[in-house]
Design a binder for these strands. Sequence first.
DNA 1: CCCAGGACCTGCCAGC
DNA 2: TGCTGGCAGGTCCTGG
Length: 293
Amino acid sequence: MPELPEVETVRRGLQPVMEGAKIVVAEARRPDLRFPFQPDFVARLQGQIVTGLGRRAKYLMADLGSGDVLLMHLGMSGSFRVIKPDNEAAPGEFHYPKGKDSAHDHVLFRMSSGADIVFNDPRRFGYMKVIARNALEDEPLLRDLGPEPLGNEFDAAMLARSCQDKTTSLKAALLDQRVVAGLGNIYVCEALHRSHLSPRRIAATLSTKKSEPTDHAKRLVGAIHTVLNDAIKAGGSSLRDHRQTSGELGYFQHSFKVYDREGEKCTTPRCGGTIKRFTQNGRSTFWCSKCQK
DNA sequence: CCCAGGACCTGCCAGC
DNA sequence: TGCTGGCAGGTCCTGG
């Protein structure tokens, strides 16, 4: 499901019920997600106050009173929902309406704010890990992440520099979380279309020999900013699984120009092209060969 | 080191 | 109705 706008949407949904509240009960209903849970996973969460809920790239990070940080990744199909606990249930028991999907409710938190938080992930590509805050910079999952695409240090010059020796496609470079951290298949396709750049272009063409950013790089950074900000405003994109934590759908999918629009007409004014699809590095690329060069 | 491809897992949908 | 193959918003690991 989730790229940066979906994760940010989830963060904003969880923040009001998590920040300042205590994790009264934590439960992991299976031994692993993508990785095994740490043996002390539950123990390090239970009883802790969540002092802040942040986001880095596609990770959610809950700061705990103990000095630990709970790192959460949604993988492809992870989602959180916030429900009201059933007052009939015994304390410490999670008791809520079961859906067809509840077999994949893997992690539950009861918050002192009066909310139960349920993490559901059918494919189990997501994961959670508790890390000491003072060890964050050594954390392998975070260590190699590039700049936040909406952060101050990410600009055309920086993007051009990190692409200057890359022989791979521009599409693959933008999906590389070391280059810029938070984009995924949808928003890379969309940003490339909006900047009229071909996904097949060699990444190094974003810079000159002197590593100066080209106008292409500037356009691309502008398009990344616009598409991510617009998608966050829309509550993300809902194709299959993504819901806001309230259960509402995001609606940015209605603003897609290329993603999942194979065969449809390109919306670029006076272009007249047709959206095509092909596979790059094992993933679908959607684009218009007429206006993306 | 860089890069492409496979692996991980389940669900859904189109086509037979 | 099945059943089957292909596809899905991510990223780690391996081998060239």
